[in-house]
């Protein structure tokens, strides 16, 4: 019913627009107004003012969205490298917002100020080397800053140096779900290949590789210790997926036939994050929406998502990462079956 009303409304709007256009055409015909070719002085005046009006719309829209939707963006990062990238992100965002807030008003103000009303003459100006040099060098200098900061951050993320050996965990993607494998006591993952997949051996771990026997395979939920370096190694069974953990500011593709990796240190436990003021605000906003719809309340969790198109259920590949204290992690680990025990 709603859609029917919607369609009828659209049709009516169209009809009204059509009629208005006809009226404009007919009245122009009567007034012998020229509706083609160069605009007349009055139109230039109106359009110039409209362009200035658009500037107000743009700036008001910008302010509104920042105020209304800004609080919805990802909360404080929960990893050590994430804090570094977050700073660079908001530094860059600040710079480009400033550029936006300077250039857009110039564009629309000039459009308004120099609108072709009576008596205006354009000035003949071909170029100005000094000006052009300035706006080559200023963005250049800002970019040098952003590039060097960015590269330094990137290199540190990609070639991390940790005080202790990171815990090795494999993230295995397939259509449509995640499986994780913790490297076990030896902290070495056993060799695996899709060819070895059978029954409970869903990751295709080579039974003859001693490194694999103590590996621990989990689904739906994995616990990791806080403040410990973790090396994630990604594999895929079928197509390209992407392991995306937005709260850790972490993403890496899972490529069939290859192993990719990403190391990080989670520095906030799930419990801590649930008390983060921004998270509290967002969760209560979400729960208001969910209660209104009669859905179960939501509790914050670190979530692993797929972020590379991988097929029809791409939109629903999830796994919970629970960041806990080291003791809790060890206790949890003891409850899990090793690969040797499960086969």
């Amino acid at each position: 019913m709603m859609t029917l009303i919607g369609i009828v409304t659209i049709l009516l709007v169209l009809l009204v627009a059509w009629q208005l256009i006809r009226i404009a055409e007919l009245s122009a015909e009567i007034k012998k107004e020229n509706l083609t070719g160069l605009p007349n002085v009055k139109e230039n005046d109106v359009q110039g003012k409209l362009l200035f009006g658009f500037l107000i719309f743009l700036m008001a829209g910008f302010l509104y969205t920042v105020v209304a939707w800004g609080p919805k963006v990802l909360p404080t990062p929960a990893s050590v490298h994430g804090e570094k990238t977050e700073f660079l992100f908001y530094l860059s965002l600040g710079i480009i917002t400033a550029a936006f807030l300077i250039t857009q008003p110039i564009l629309f103000y000039f459009s308004y100020k120099y609108r072709g009303i009576k008596g205006r003459k354009a000035s003949y100006m071909e170029h100005n080397n000094k000006l052009e040099l300035i706006w080559t060098l200023v963005p250049g200098a800002v970019l040098v800053l952003l590039i060097s900061y960015g590269l330094a951050t990137w290199v540190r993320i990609m070639n991390p140096k940790f005080d202790e050996d990171p815990i090795v965990i494999e993230l295995y993607a397939k259509q449509f779900g995640w499986t994780a494998r913790i490297a076990g006591e030896d902290n070495k993952l056993g060799y695996a290949n899709a060819r070895y997949i059978e029954d409970v051996n869903i990751l295709g771990i080579d039974k003859n590789d001693p490194n694999g026997l103590d590996d621990i395979v989990v689904q739906n939920l994995i616990k990791i210790p806080v403040n410990k370096p973790i090396k994630l190694k990604m594999r895929s069974q079928d197509v390209i997926h992407s392991a995306y953990l937005p709260h850790f500011r972490l993403q890496m593709n899972c490529v069939p036939g290859a192993i990719t990796e990403f190391s990080f240190i989670p520095n906030k436990t799930t419990a801590e994050m649930r008390n983060d003021p921004m998270v509290v605000r967002q969760v209560s906003e979400i729960n208001n929406i969910r209660t209104a719809k009669g859905e179960d309340p939501y509790e914050f969790n670190y979530i692993l998502l797929c972020n590379k198109i991988c097929g029809s259920a791409h939109y629903n590949m999830q796994m919970v990462f629970e960041v806990v204290s080291e003791e809790e992690y060890k206790d949890w680990l003891k409850e899990q079956k090793t690969f040797a025990q499960s086969i």
Partner: peptide
């Protein structure tokens, strides 16, 4: 800068 001091025809 092209717009600046022009005689803009919209």
């Amino acid at each position: 800068t092209t717009l600046w001091k022009g005689n803009l025809q919209f």
